[in-house]
Design a protein around this nucleic acid. Structure first.
Lengths: 246, 246
DNA sequence: TAGTGGTCTAGACCACCAA
DNA sequence: TGGTGGTCTAGACCACTAC
């Protein structure tokens, strides 16, 4: 139990040794979710390390989401995040997907505005030069936790006044008979920037799942271009694969 | 051009200011791929910062893959990684997928052994207690770059001697008429551990795409349980969504 | 051998939180 | 007000690379 914060000695860099000890203590339950760690200065004193080295050991664990630091308060073992499993075969919106699971969800709108289309947006939506687009940036919440950042772009003809749109973009589109029936989605992993981490209440550098989606109408026209950033620790995307023709 | 490494002043932490400058210089092409940065000590001298602060600014950029550091040599602007787009609707193996793109690929086998099944493996493969499994850990290479870590687990009845298996697991299975036709795959984003980063030649803490896959035979029995870790900067997984029944 | 990044230290000041 | 994490410094030694 208290062999975690004793003088370090052993193989490899000192910060790695301490880091491994804390990690093991959490994994083996000797440090439980919500437990507070000794103050950095005290860990330094007990281990015989400098505070800089102690902070380096802790920093990685914070980035991985195992520890949480609160300025003025202390360092704590993070409560494990409930993971959501999101299906990847059906085309649904965030709010519809959460509702299907019996989960609350809400959007915090960061910005909603119109402007000229950027080259990338023209390409994705099949717009001509000088056409206007509407952009909505939102933080998606569920269970009292920010789950994803979302930036949706639509032609201004579809959504002339983005600030007037209510909670669900898909409800808006359905009401206007512009509901997409098909989408192509690309996913990759990125490190969160400081600004992104702040909005998602995570540590800068933590892993996030970046998803770009272009949704199409029955006629084949693109109607929505959305770039999302999901918490890497809260989401599993599930997909079913079938044997190909090869 | 050389306004990057001048005395810093401005808003926010000093390391963030310097970091932003370097990032902007790379994005705007003032620093090109392959360019070397001044030595840390020289940056410190020119900016008026301490070396610790300079290192902190650089560390994040290394994690994001924008910079590469080589001990004894220097710090360089990273060459952008060619991204692979991987389809997510067809069930293929890594080597087959690369071949379809006209890419070379090879496996570096880290370990191949048999042993008693862990609970998680029993669950995934539908095995009884005390059954044996074969495990293969590989690094997947393509284009002279490590692309993914892969740990495949199969029943020892299917693969009694994992060390005798050749290059492609799926070729082996096809030869024995045990080729899976269906798979369920779960994806999420994680930060690479030091060991994982080392094998993938990335920085510790960089973002990786974790994929767990269970593949099934026509009869419905699970035959393969694979956990992979792909470079977050080299992969895009693409999937097509269709409107649901809702 | 000279220069580079990698590790580590002791000490300082600040902003913030809780009692 | 006292303790916490967040930032920053000046200096040291080591391991490695390139010459």
């Amino acid at each position: 139990m208290d062999d975690v914060f004793t003088p370090v000695a052993g193989a490899g860099p000192l910060y790695a040794v301490l880091q491994g000890r804390i990690e093991a203590a959490i994994r083996e339950g000797r440090l439980k979710p919500g437990d507070s760690l000794p103050a950095e200065r005290e860990i330094a004193a007990r281990t015989g390390l400098s505070r800089v080295t102690v902070r380096r050991a802790i920093a990685d664990l914070v980035r991985q989401g195992l520890l949480v630091q609160r300025r003025g308060s202390g360092t704590y073992v993070a409560r494990p995040v409930e993971r959501f499993e999101m299906g990847l075969s059906q085309l649904t919106s965030f709010s519809a997907d959460m509702a299907r699971r019996g989960r609350d969800s809400c959007s915090q709108i960061l910005s909603a505005a119109t402007g000229p289309a950027a080259p990338e947006e023209m390409m994705a939506l099949g717009l001509g030069a000088a056409e206007q687009v509407a952009r909505i940036e939102r933080v998606r919440w569920s269970g009292g936790m920010p789950m994803a950042l979302e930036r949706s772009v639509l032609s201004a003809e579809v959504l002339p006044d983005p600030s007037a749109m209510g909670g669900s973009l898909y409800a808006y589109l359905r009401a206007r008979d512009l509901l997409p029936v098909r989408a192509v989605q690309r996913m990759s992993a990125v490190n969160l920037t400081a600004a992104e981490a702040d909005l998602l209440q995570m540590a800068p550098g933590a892993a996030g799942l970046k998803i770009e989606r272009v949704a199409y109408l029955p006629g084949g026209n693109a109607v929505e271009f959305t770039r999302s950033l999901f918490r890497g620790d809260a989401y599993d995307f599930a997909v079913e694969l079938k044997a190909g023709d090869a």
